[in-house]
């Protein structure tokens, strides 16, 4: 029981933090103007937590705007009528949550695998290549992520214009969701980051004793890299996973707008009750947290066995 509590405590505190964050508008919102009030904030937070314990009573607002024409004899002016309909949150939202969280986690996996494979391949190359690659990577990494997004979108459309072959649809249409290009754009920046980290970290590994020992035993270079250096670098790399997740999620926020995707962010930013927003945010954050912590745990466990 106590072990479970220790295991769950970071997650519980994380969820409380998420609830605290999602209730922030009530810190400033007065009746008609800005009014700072800590008391109202506390009230909202407690209400939100109480509501969150009853997930089936949560609702989702949908705004619709309809164009209305008054009857003919009057002048032909148009009127916009705002309508808000309320629906239960579940199971409506599952598909959307899975789409967003799935994209993030898939590109997380792609970035890690790409970085490891590329890192292993560059280790086999002569060291001049490595230096040039490192310089290139740190240059690319300093670019804002939107630069890549625009370039990829332009590139896909350019190929389509030239050859008539659409590699993947660059925008979500009503028929099919965009999948491939968001995945590619999402995983590029974290991939570069991880790759550079791999190269830097494995550089510090070279001078360590076990490498010299392995080499003196006559183990071939590629075997040393694959078996010893790589696994040690990966465990060093795992401390950077939370940063990668943050990078991915913050890119996802922008990509959802740029690729016109039907994801969670647009629901979060529309007018919704606090508890719905908190619930949606929790649903997204939970798998990301689980992925990072789980992966770290697996890597550390393997490393401990190696040490023994």
């Amino acid at each position: 029981m106590k072990k479970l509590f220790v295991l769950m405590r970071p997650y519980l505190l994380l969820s409380i933090g998420v609830v605290l964050l999602s209730a922030t508008p009530s810190l400033f919102a007065g009746e008609n103007n800005l009014k700072f009030s800590l008391f109202r904030y506390g009230q909202t937070v407690i209400e939100t937590i109480v509501q969150l314990t009853k997930p089936h009573s949560l609702t989702l607002y949908t705004q619709t705007q309809t164009l209305a024409f008054p009857t003919m004899p009057e002048n032909r002016s148009v009127e916009f009528l705002d309508q808000i309909t309320e629906r239960p949150l579940f199971p409506e939202v599952w598909g959307i949550v899975i789409y967003t969280a799935g994209l993030i986690i898939a590109s997380f996996t792609i970035a890690i695998i790409m970085a490891i494979v590329l890192g292993w391949m560059t280790e086999l190359l002569p060291s001049i290549f490595k230096k040039v690659l490192l310089k290139c990577c740190s240059l690319l990494e300093s670019m804002p992520d939107l630069f890549f997004v625009f370039c990829i979108q332009l590139f896909v459309v350019w190929i389509y214009k030239q050859t008539g072959w659409l590699a993947a649809n660059p925008f979500t249409s009503s028929k099919e969701p965009a999948l491939l290009i968001p995945l590619a754009t999402l995983s590029i920046v974290p991939g570069i980051y991880l790759f550079r980290m791999m190269l830097l970290l494995s550089e510090t590994e070279v001078d360590k004793d076990y490498i010299t020992f392995a080499r003196s035993k006559g183990i071939s270079k590629s075997a040393i890299i694959l078996k010893h250096r790589l696994s040690n670098t990966i465990s060093e790399l795992s401390t950077h996973f939370p940063i990668i997740m943050l990078l991915l999620f913050s890119q996802m926020v922008v990509l959802e707008y740029l690729f016109n995707m039907n994801g969670v962010i647009q629901i979060l930013l529309s007018e919704q009750p606090y508890e719905t927003k908190a619930m949606l945010l929790l649903l997204i954050v939970t798998p990301l947290f689980a992925a990072v912590k789980g992966l770290q745990k697996v890597i550390f466990k393997r490393r401990n066995i190696h040490v023994e």
Partner: peptide, 24 residues
Amino acid sequence: DLIQSFQYVPPSLIVLLTLSPFLF
């Protein structure tokens, strides 16, 4: 651990969540 929420929710989303009721 509480601050960890800043590590999993990106700053852009936090700002948007806070400001969207006022500025959109």
